[in-house]
Simulated assay, not measured.
Amino acid sequence: MNISFEGKRVLVTGVGQGIGRNLALHLSKYHATVIGISKTQKHLDSLKAEDPSIITIQVDLCDWSATKKAVESVLPIDMLVNNAGLACLAPFLKATEEEFDLTMNVNVKPIVNVSQIVGADLIKRKVAGTIVNVSSQAGQAAVRDHAIYCASKGAVDMLTKVMAVEFGPHNIRVNSVNPTVVMTAMGKIGWDDPVKARSMIDKIPLGRFAEVEEVVNAIVYLLSDQSSMINGVTLPIDGGFLAT
């Protein structure tokens, strides 16, 4: 595919590590003006050192007001990737209020906050746009010890659909990607144990976890005009896990 984002301003949350960092670097190579948000300044510094063209913003996405101010300061934005996320894993009976609040505050609330700002500005400018939310197969399939995480990603999937319905008439497309396990720092929290990892891999017809670049490529496709009629989709990147 001949993809170029030249002249486009793309905001990516959670660029400090993993999928978000890789995505920011890829989008820059596709000639986008990339604005990356992370809570951790040292991660932003290392990203900036690798690609000085990337604009970095340090903000805690759990802070609604600070996030709103930060995003408004970098408008206009043409494309948005809500990637920031975390996983608090525990059996259902041992899940805590603190873990629930933190998970929803990171995985769900910023999608509403940031997308409201970007979406409203796109509508005001009467410009077509694209939003991609990074969800998970855990939003569509129950995974042991992932009750709160599954709930948060289920919320992301439904937000994606409602946003697609409401933004569609303004020519703003909204989709999500729903990867299986990706062995980023967050992925290792739940699946670093080889025995536990094997229990999941055995349920994936392709017999392996996803690579970061495989998720990034799907996001790039959904951002691009190559997917111009795709809206409201929750796209599995799971090697067939959800098909079984």
Rank of each mutant, 00 (worst) to 15 (best):
I3K: 06
I3C: 04
F5S: 01
G7H: 08
G7W: 08
K8P: 11
K8Y: 11
V10P: 11
L11G: 07
V12H: 12
T13P: 10
T13D: 02
G14Q: 12
V15P: 06
G16L: 05
Q17L: 13
G18T: 07
R21E: 01
R21G: 03
R21Q: 11
N22D: 08
N22I: 01
A24W: 09
A32Y: 09
I35A: 14
T40V: 13
Q41C: 01
H43G: 03
D45Q: 11
S46R: 09
L47F: 00
L47W: 00
E50Y: 08
E50W: 07
E50V: 09
D51Q: 11
S53M: 02
I54S: 06
I54Q: 06
T56N: 05
Q58Y: 03
V59Q: 05
V59E: 02
C62D: 05
D63E: 01
W64P: 00
W64H: 15
K68C: 10
A70G: 06
V71K: 04
E72Q: 13
S73M: 04
P76K: 00
P76A: 00
L80N: 02
V81A: 06
N83H: 08
N83A: 07
A84G: 05
A84R: 00
G85V: 07
A87T: 10
P91T: 09
P91V: 08
F92Q: 02
F92K: 06
L93F: 14
L93I: 11
E97A: 07
E98I: 10
N105L: 04
N105P: 03
V108L: 14
P110F: 05
P110E: 05
N113A: 04
N113S: 04
S115F: 04
V118H: 02
G119Q: 03
D121E: 09
L122N: 03
K126S: 15
V127W: 03
N133S: 09
S136L: 09
S136W: 02
A138F: 02
A141R: 14
R144A: 13
H146D: 11
A147N: 09
A147L: 12
Y149K: 00
A151K: 06
A155H: 12
L159G: 13
K161A: 14
M163V: 08
A164K: 13
F167E: 12
P169N: 00
H170L: 07
H170K: 13
N171P: 11
N171W: 14
I172K: 06
R173L: 12
R173C: 14
N175E: 12
N178F: 10
N178C: 15
P179H: 05
T184C: 14
M186A: 10
M186S: 12
K188T: 04
W191T: 05
D192H: 08
P194T: 01
V195A: 10
R198K: 15
S199W: 01
I204C: 03
G207F: 03
R208N: 04
R208I: 02
F209I: 06
A210M: 13
A210S: 14
V212D: 01
E214M: 04
V215K: 09
N217H: 05
A218G: 06
V220C: 11
S224E: 05
S224A: 07
S224W: 07
S227H: 07
S227P: 09
M229V: 14
I230C: 14
L235S: 04
L235C: 05
L235D: 03
G240S: 01
F241W: 13
L242S: 13
L242N: 10
A243V: 09
A243P: 01
